[in-house]
C-alpha cells in the first residue's frame, strides 16, 4: 500500500516535466496527453525497479525500452513520428545533474589543482552520465533496431 502511494506521487511529479519540456519542443497540443502518460508511467516504472534494488542504468534501460514500445503503438495509431512522444517522456530520466556535476568538477580540477576526491567525483559522475544516457537512447531505439530494421515505422 505504502509502495503504491509512493508510485502515485512519483508519477504525479513526473508528468509535469514531461509536459513542460514537450511544450519547449512544440509538440502539438493533441499529443501532450501522450507525453504526460508516457512520462508518468516510464518514471514510476523506473522508480519501482530501483525500489527492488535494480541499478539505475538497468532500470533506465527497462523503462525507456518499454516507453519505446509504447511509443511504437501510439505512433502507428496516430501516424505521428515516434520521437514526438518518446523523447519528451524520457526527459524526467535524463541524468542532467550528473552531467553538470561532472563538468563543474572538471572546472574545479583546473582552478583548484588535482586532488583524488575531486577526480573521483568527476569519474564516477561522468561514467554514470554516459551509461544512463546510453541506456536511455538505446531503449528508445530498440523497436526500430529489433523489429523494423530500416523500414519506416509510420
Amino acid at each position: 500500500m505504502e509502495l503504491i502511494k509512493l508510485l502515485v506521487i512519483d508519477a504525479w511529479f513526473a508528468w509535469i516535466p514531461a509536459v513542460g519540456f514537450a511544450m519547449v519542443f512544440n509538440v502539438p497540443k493533441k499529443m501532450l496527453i501522450y507525453c504526460a502518460i508516457g512520462g508518468a508511467s516510464a518514471h514510476s516504472f523506473r522508480y519501482l525497479l530501483m525500489h527492488f534494488g535494480i541499478p539505475i542504468e538497468w532500470a533506465t534501460l527497462a523503462a525507456s525500452s518499454s516507453m519505446g514500445f509504447l511509443g511504437l503503438y501510439w505512433s502507428r495509431k496516430r501516424l505521428i513520428p515516434r520521437p514526438v512522444f518518446t523523447v519528451a517522456s524520457v526527459i524526467p530520466m535524463i541524468p542532467g545533474s550528473f552531467a553538470f556535476t561532472t563538468v563543474i568538477g572538471i572546472v574545479e580540477l583546473n582552478s583548484g589543482g588535482y586532488n583524488m576526491a575531486l577526480a573521483q567525483v568527476v569519474v564516477e559522475n561522468g561514467l554514470r552520465t554516459l551509461f544512463i544516457l546510453g541506456a536511455l537512447s538505446f531503449g528508445l531505439a530498440l523497436p526500430s533496431i529489433l523489429i523494423y530494421r530500416g523500414r519506416p515505422i509510420v
Binding site: F25, P83, V87, I94, G96, L133, G134, L136, S137, A141
Partner: peptide, 16 residues
Amino acid sequence: LVPGFPLINAVSDMLK
C-alpha cells in the same frame, strides 16, 4: 538547460 533532445538524437543517430 540540459540539452536532452540533442543528446538523445546524437546517440540514436549513431546507433542507426
